[in-house]
Protein backbone atom coordinates (compact mmCIF):
# COMPACT_ATOMS: atom_id res chain seq x y z
CA UNK A 1 0.00 0.00 0.00
CA UNK A 2 2.75 2.42 1.01
CA UNK A 3 4.90 1.46 -1.94
CA UNK A 4 1.94 1.85 -4.21
CA UNK A 5 1.41 5.35 -2.92
CA UNK A 6 5.07 6.22 -3.49
CA UNK A 7 4.89 4.78 -7.01
CA UNK A 8 1.95 6.98 -7.93
CA UNK A 9 3.37 10.02 -6.21
CA UNK A 10 6.66 9.62 -8.07
CA UNK A 11 4.96 9.14 -11.41
CA UNK A 12 2.75 12.15 -10.69
CA UNK A 13 5.81 14.31 -10.03
CA UNK A 14 7.52 13.08 -13.20
CA UNK A 15 4.41 13.88 -15.24
CA UNK A 16 4.24 17.39 -13.80
CA UNK A 17 7.93 17.88 -14.38
CA UNK A 18 7.51 17.13 -18.08
CA UNK A 19 4.38 19.28 -18.21
CA UNK A 20 6.35 22.30 -17.09
CA UNK A 21 8.28 23.10 -20.23
CA UNK A 22 8.28 25.84 -22.78
CA UNK A 23 5.30 25.48 -25.12
CA UNK A 24 6.04 24.44 -28.70
CA UNK A 25 3.73 27.12 -29.92
CA UNK A 26 2.40 29.73 -27.57
CA UNK A 27 -0.71 30.47 -29.61
CA UNK A 28 -1.87 26.84 -29.52
CA UNK A 29 -1.52 26.72 -25.74
CA UNK A 30 -3.30 30.04 -25.43
CA UNK A 31 -6.19 28.83 -27.55
CA UNK A 32 -6.48 25.63 -25.54
CA UNK A 33 -6.33 27.54 -22.25
CA UNK A 34 -9.14 29.83 -23.38
CA UNK A 35 -11.25 26.85 -24.42
CA UNK A 36 -10.70 25.24 -21.04
CA UNK A 37 -11.55 28.45 -19.18
CA UNK A 38 -14.81 28.56 -21.05
CA UNK A 39 -15.56 24.90 -20.37
CA UNK A 40 -14.66 25.01 -16.71
CA UNK A 41 -15.89 28.49 -15.92
CA UNK A 42 -19.04 29.07 -17.93
CA UNK A 43 -19.81 25.37 -17.88
CA UNK A 44 -19.90 25.28 -14.08
CA UNK A 45 -21.76 28.52 -13.40
CA UNK A 46 -25.20 27.00 -12.93
CA UNK A 47 -24.20 24.17 -10.63
CA UNK A 48 -21.93 26.40 -8.53
CA UNK A 49 -24.64 29.03 -8.23
CA UNK A 50 -27.26 26.51 -7.26
CA UNK A 51 -25.13 24.96 -4.56
CA UNK A 52 -24.09 28.33 -3.21
CA UNK A 53 -27.69 29.50 -2.74
CA UNK A 54 -28.47 26.47 -0.63
CA UNK A 55 -25.27 26.64 1.38
CA UNK A 56 -26.17 30.17 2.44
CA UNK A 57 -29.81 29.38 3.03
CA UNK A 58 -29.11 26.31 5.15
CA UNK A 59 -26.41 28.02 7.20
CA UNK A 60 -28.70 30.96 7.94
CA UNK A 61 -31.70 28.84 8.83
CA UNK A 62 -29.77 26.55 11.14
CA UNK A 63 -27.95 29.31 12.97
CA UNK A 64 -31.20 31.16 13.42
CA UNK A 65 -32.57 28.04 15.08
CA UNK A 66 -29.52 27.67 17.32
CA UNK A 67 -29.60 31.31 18.35
CA UNK A 68 -33.25 31.15 19.42
CA UNK A 69 -33.72 31.98 23.08
CA UNK A 70 -30.05 32.85 23.50
CA UNK A 71 -28.47 36.15 24.37
CA UNK A 72 -26.60 36.32 21.07
CA UNK A 73 -28.02 39.20 19.01
CA UNK A 74 -30.00 38.15 15.92
CA UNK A 75 -27.84 40.13 13.53
CA UNK A 76 -25.07 37.60 14.20
CA UNK A 77 -26.74 35.37 11.64
CA UNK A 78 -25.49 37.57 8.81
CA UNK A 79 -22.03 37.66 10.32
CA UNK A 80 -21.87 33.88 10.72
CA UNK A 81 -23.15 33.16 7.22
CA UNK A 82 -20.58 35.53 5.74
CA UNK A 83 -17.58 34.15 7.57
CA UNK A 84 -18.40 30.48 7.34
CA UNK A 85 -19.01 30.66 3.61
CA UNK A 86 -15.93 32.77 2.90
CA UNK A 87 -13.53 30.77 5.02
CA UNK A 88 -14.75 27.28 4.47
CA UNK A 89 -17.98 26.47 2.72
CA UNK A 90 -17.61 28.35 -0.56
CA UNK A 91 -14.08 27.18 -1.45
CA UNK A 92 -14.37 23.64 -0.13
CA UNK A 93 -17.83 22.63 -1.23
CA UNK A 94 -17.49 24.33 -4.59
CA UNK A 95 -14.22 22.55 -5.28
CA UNK A 96 -15.50 19.19 -4.05
CA UNK A 97 -18.34 19.54 -6.52
CA UNK A 98 -16.01 20.73 -9.27
CA UNK A 99 -13.79 17.71 -8.64
CA UNK A 100 -16.82 15.65 -9.55
CA UNK A 101 -17.74 17.69 -12.57
CA UNK A 102 -14.48 19.01 -13.99
CA UNK A 103 -12.13 16.37 -12.60
CA UNK A 104 -14.00 13.38 -13.94
CA UNK A 105 -14.34 15.16 -17.27
CA UNK A 106 -10.59 15.79 -17.51
CA UNK A 107 -9.74 12.21 -16.58
CA UNK A 108 -12.19 10.83 -19.14
CA UNK A 109 -11.04 13.18 -21.90
CA UNK A 110 -7.33 12.53 -21.46
CA UNK A 111 -7.89 8.83 -20.77
CA UNK A 112 -9.94 8.48 -23.94
CA UNK A 113 -7.17 10.12 -25.92
CA UNK A 114 -4.66 7.71 -24.42
CA UNK A 115 -6.77 4.69 -25.31
CA UNK A 116 -7.51 5.80 -28.85
CA UNK A 117 -3.79 6.42 -29.47
CA UNK A 118 -4.36 10.16 -29.88
CA UNK A 119 -1.64 10.84 -27.34
CA UNK A 120 0.76 8.54 -29.20
CA UNK A 121 -0.11 10.27 -32.46
CA UNK A 122 0.67 13.67 -30.94
CA UNK A 123 3.89 12.37 -29.43
CA UNK A 124 5.01 11.17 -32.85
CA UNK A 125 4.43 14.62 -34.26
CA UNK A 126 6.84 15.87 -31.62
CA UNK A 127 4.24 17.42 -29.32
CA UNK A 128 5.00 17.33 -25.61
CA UNK A 129 1.63 15.84 -24.68
CA UNK A 130 2.20 16.02 -20.95
CA UNK A 131 2.47 19.73 -21.38
CA UNK A 132 -0.09 20.39 -24.10
CA UNK A 133 -2.84 18.29 -22.55
CA UNK A 134 -2.30 19.20 -18.91
CA UNK A 135 -0.82 22.68 -18.56
CA UNK A 136 -3.71 24.60 -20.20
CA UNK A 137 -6.23 22.78 -18.01
CA UNK A 138 -4.34 23.47 -14.80
CA UNK A 139 -3.80 27.12 -15.65
CA UNK A 140 -7.36 27.64 -16.81
CA UNK A 141 -8.70 26.08 -13.62
CA UNK A 142 -6.41 28.15 -11.41
CA UNK A 143 -7.70 31.31 -13.05
CA UNK A 144 -11.35 30.45 -13.27
CA UNK A 145 -12.05 28.44 -10.13
CA UNK A 146 -11.07 31.24 -7.70
CA UNK A 147 -13.54 33.42 -9.61
CA UNK A 148 -16.22 30.77 -9.24
CA UNK A 149 -15.48 30.43 -5.54
CA UNK A 150 -15.70 34.18 -5.08
CA UNK A 151 -19.01 34.19 -6.87
CA UNK A 152 -20.19 31.25 -4.77
CA UNK A 153 -19.41 33.15 -1.58
CA UNK A 154 -21.38 36.16 -2.77
CA UNK A 155 -24.33 34.05 -3.82
CA UNK A 156 -24.26 32.18 -0.51
CA UNK A 157 -24.52 35.38 1.44
CA UNK A 158 -27.43 36.39 -0.73
CA UNK A 159 -28.95 32.92 -0.20
CA UNK A 160 -28.68 33.39 3.53
CA UNK A 161 -30.39 36.76 3.23
CA UNK A 162 -33.25 35.32 1.25
CA UNK A 163 -33.74 32.40 3.61
CA UNK A 164 -33.65 34.39 6.83
CA UNK A 165 -35.27 37.68 5.83
CA UNK A 166 -37.95 36.34 3.53
CA UNK A 167 -39.11 33.85 6.14
CA UNK A 168 -39.16 36.50 8.81
CA UNK A 169 -36.40 35.06 11.00
CA UNK A 170 -34.75 38.48 11.18
CA UNK A 171 -35.19 41.81 9.45
CA UNK A 172 -33.14 42.82 6.44
CA UNK A 173 -31.55 45.62 8.45
CA UNK A 174 -30.31 43.11 11.00
CA UNK A 175 -28.96 40.70 8.39
CA UNK A 176 -27.10 43.45 6.56
CA UNK A 177 -25.75 44.81 9.81
CA UNK A 178 -24.45 41.31 10.52
CA UNK A 179 -22.86 40.94 7.12
CA UNK A 180 -21.06 44.25 7.68
CA UNK A 181 -19.79 43.50 11.18
CA UNK A 182 -16.33 42.32 12.20
CA UNK A 183 -15.08 41.96 8.64
CA UNK A 184 -11.58 40.48 8.31
CA UNK A 185 -10.06 40.91 4.82
CA UNK A 186 -7.61 38.16 5.75
CA UNK A 187 -10.45 35.62 5.47
CA UNK A 188 -10.88 36.54 1.82
CA UNK A 189 -7.19 35.94 1.32
CA UNK A 190 -7.65 32.49 2.91
CA UNK A 191 -10.52 31.80 0.55
CA UNK A 192 -8.38 32.56 -2.49
CA UNK A 193 -5.47 30.49 -1.23
CA UNK A 194 -7.80 27.54 -0.78
CA UNK A 195 -9.43 28.02 -4.17
CA UNK A 196 -6.06 28.15 -5.92
CA UNK A 197 -4.70 25.07 -4.18
CA UNK A 198 -7.92 23.08 -4.68
CA UNK A 199 -8.08 24.05 -8.36
CA UNK A 200 -4.53 22.86 -8.83
CA UNK A 201 -5.20 19.59 -7.02
CA UNK A 202 -8.37 18.67 -8.82
CA UNK A 203 -7.01 19.31 -12.31
CA UNK A 204 -3.55 17.83 -11.90
CA UNK A 205 -4.72 14.72 -10.06
CA UNK A 206 -7.46 14.10 -12.61
CA UNK A 207 -5.10 14.66 -15.51
CA UNK A 208 -2.67 12.20 -13.96
CA UNK A 209 -5.39 9.58 -13.64
CA UNK A 210 -6.37 10.00 -17.27
CA UNK A 211 -2.87 10.22 -18.71
CA UNK A 212 -1.82 6.79 -17.47
CA UNK A 213 -4.99 4.88 -18.29
CA UNK A 214 -4.57 1.45 -19.82
CA UNK A 215 -7.06 -1.11 -20.97
CA UNK A 216 -10.60 -0.33 -22.05
CA UNK A 217 -13.84 1.32 -21.06
CA UNK A 218 -13.96 -0.27 -17.60
CA UNK A 219 -10.53 1.14 -16.76
CA UNK A 220 -11.56 4.50 -18.16
CA UNK A 221 -14.55 4.53 -15.85
CA UNK A 222 -12.35 3.59 -12.92
CA UNK A 223 -9.85 6.31 -13.74
CA UNK A 224 -12.61 8.85 -13.82
CA UNK A 225 -13.96 7.68 -10.46
CA UNK A 226 -10.50 7.63 -8.92
CA UNK A 227 -9.87 11.14 -10.21
CA UNK A 228 -12.84 12.35 -8.17
CA UNK A 229 -12.12 10.28 -5.08
CA UNK A 230 -8.44 11.18 -4.85
CA UNK A 231 -9.09 14.84 -5.65
CA UNK A 232 -11.72 14.98 -2.90
CA UNK A 233 -9.46 13.33 -0.33
CA UNK A 234 -6.55 15.58 -1.20
CA UNK A 235 -8.74 18.69 -1.18
CA UNK A 236 -9.98 17.92 2.33
CA UNK A 237 -6.50 17.07 3.51
CA UNK A 238 -5.02 20.25 2.14
CA UNK A 239 -7.96 22.22 3.53
CA UNK A 240 -6.86 21.11 6.96
CA UNK A 241 -3.20 21.86 6.29
CA UNK A 242 -4.02 25.32 4.95
CA UNK A 243 -6.22 25.98 7.96
CA UNK A 244 -3.32 25.15 10.26
CA UNK A 245 -0.74 27.15 8.35
CA UNK A 246 -2.84 30.25 7.79
CA UNK A 247 -4.07 30.48 11.35
CA UNK A 248 -0.70 30.05 13.00
Amino acid sequence: MNLNFLYHFGRYLILLRSALTRPEKFSMYWKETMRQMNDIGIGSLVIVGLIAVFIGAVTATQFAYQLQDSFVPAYYIGYIVRDSTIIELAPTITCLVLAGKVGSNIAAEIGGMRQKEHIDAMEIMGVNTASYLILPKVIAAMVVIPMLVCLAAAISIWGGYTASVATGLITDVEYIQGVRSFFEPYYVFMMFVKALVFAYILTSVSAYQGYHVKGGSIELGQASTQAVVYSDILILLSDYVIAIILTM
Binding site: K116, D120, A121, I124, M125, G126, N128
Partner: peptide
Protein backbone atom coordinates in the same frame (compact mmCIF):
# COMPACT_ATOMS: atom_id res chain seq x y z
CA UNK B 1 11.13 14.99 -29.88
CA UNK B 2 13.49 16.79 -32.23
CA UNK B 3 13.78 13.65 -34.36
CA UNK B 4 10.07 12.99 -34.10
CA UNK B 5 9.30 16.29 -35.76
CA UNK B 6 10.78 14.70 -38.86
CA UNK B 7 8.65 11.58 -38.49
CA UNK B 8 5.22 11.03 -39.98
CA UNK B 9 3.24 8.06 -38.80
CA UNK B 10 0.01 6.41 -39.79
CA UNK B 11 -1.44 4.27 -37.01
CA UNK B 12 -3.13 0.95 -37.62
CA UNK B 13 -6.34 2.45 -36.22
CA UNK B 14 -5.73 5.85 -37.88
CA UNK B 15 -5.75 7.68 -34.49
CA UNK B 16 -7.53 10.72 -35.89
CA UNK B 17 -8.58 13.31 -33.30
Amino acid sequence: RAIRMEIGMLFQGSALF
